[in-house]
């Protein structure tokens, strides 16, 4: 019947993952975004090894090196590529350490929110009826408030701290995920393969986790990348407003805020460079997310 089919697993390029990879690499901007993002992540993870100095170890700072413009040479002969702040802190090193905090906070809150949103959204879609109505009204209530307002209120109530910022970001973002996955799950739930799982007598738990969730995940990957970007931006905003992370864990937003006061004095590098780093991170994430959305959407997917 099919003797000419080789007795092997299908080649990687024919698996859903393989098709995704080949579609993704077809767009140069997406690849650019991907490598940009990769660079940012590597910088963040290996900051202590890449950074010329530890900006938060006061022993390594020298007041004599303060307020140097980019490219200056310090008292010890070291070059400050992006200049220093008033305490002689290397801006490049600060950015690397700041990226670390920003990415960690952004990713942690996006993933926790993703988890909560998935559970809530799947329950709403699968259970339907009153459960669905109650959950979705709550989601709409949440979404009707501006994100920044909710985050500010929560931080004001909970106080400062990395965990509290993450909590505030999760509180702001879970509703997006819940609404999105509910919509996806409602569509999938009506498909015949879910009916087939009922005929096979599977438990609700199995149907939702093994069949419904995997089929809702691909479009959600997009939302996750976008939401990581928006979590980072929101955290930067909160830090800029002075209600973000504690001073001991300065993020990019805080550095921008700190440098802001010196803009008029001509020390542009204190704000601009952390700002560029933030921009680069968010644009990379969005490029990757945008293109993922295009290739995961069957309507815009090239064949």
């Amino acid at each position: 019947m099919s003797g000419n089919i080789p007795v092997t697993k299908p080649p990687f390029s024919q698996t859903p993952m393989g098709e995704l990879v080949s579609d993704f690499t077809a767009n140069p901007f997406a690849v650019l975004g991907f490598f940009g993002l990769l660079a940012v992540i590597i910088c963040a993870i290996f900051a202590p090894y890449i950074a010329p100095q530890n900006p938060y170890d006061l022993m390594t700072l020298d007041f004599m090196d303060g307020n140097l413009p980019p490219g200056s040479t310090g008292g010890m002969g070291q070059v400050f590529m992006l200049g220093t702040d008033d305490q002689g802190r290397d801006v490049w090193s600060s950015i690397l350490y700041g990226l670390r905090t920003s990415l960690a906070v952004g990713a942690a809150s996006a993933f926790i929110a993703f988890g909560i949103g998935c559970i809530v959204g799947l329950i709403a879609a699968y259970a339907g009826g009153l459960t669905d109505t109650l959950i979705m009204r709550l989601v709409e209530l949440q979404l009707s408030f501006p994100a920044i307002l909710i985050a500010m209120i929560l931080v004001a109530v909970l106080g400062q701290g990395t965990d509290k910022i993450i909590l505030a970001l999760v509180a702001v973002q879970w509703a997006y995920y819940a609404r999105t996955i509910r919509g996806l799950a409602l569509v999938e739930k009506g498909r015949e393969y879910i009916e087939a799982t009922h005929v096979l007598g599977f438990s609700h738990f199995r149907i939702v986790l093994r069949h419904l969730l995997p089929n809702c995940i691909p479009p959600l990957i997009v939302i996750v990348t976008m939401q990581v970007a928006s979590a980072i931006a929101l955290e930067a905003t909160l830090s800029f407003l002075g209600i973000g992370l504690p001073l001991t864990e300065p993020s990019l937003g805080q550095q921008i805020a700190n440098g802001y006061g010196y803009m008029q004095a001509g020390r542009y590098w204190l704000s601009i460079f952390p700002g560029v780093a933030l921009l680069f991170t968010i644009v990379s994430l969005n490029l990757v997310g945008d293109h993922l959305r295009d290739i995961l959407n069957p309507k815009t997917r090239r064949q």
Partner: peptide, 18 residues
């Protein structure tokens, strides 16, 4: 389970991700 079903559209009735 002794009553099983074969669906009209085999593409729609098989889980696309398994």
């Amino acid at each position: 389970l002794k009553i099983q079903m074969v669906f009209q559209d085999p593409l729609g009735s098989l889980d696309p991700r398994m």
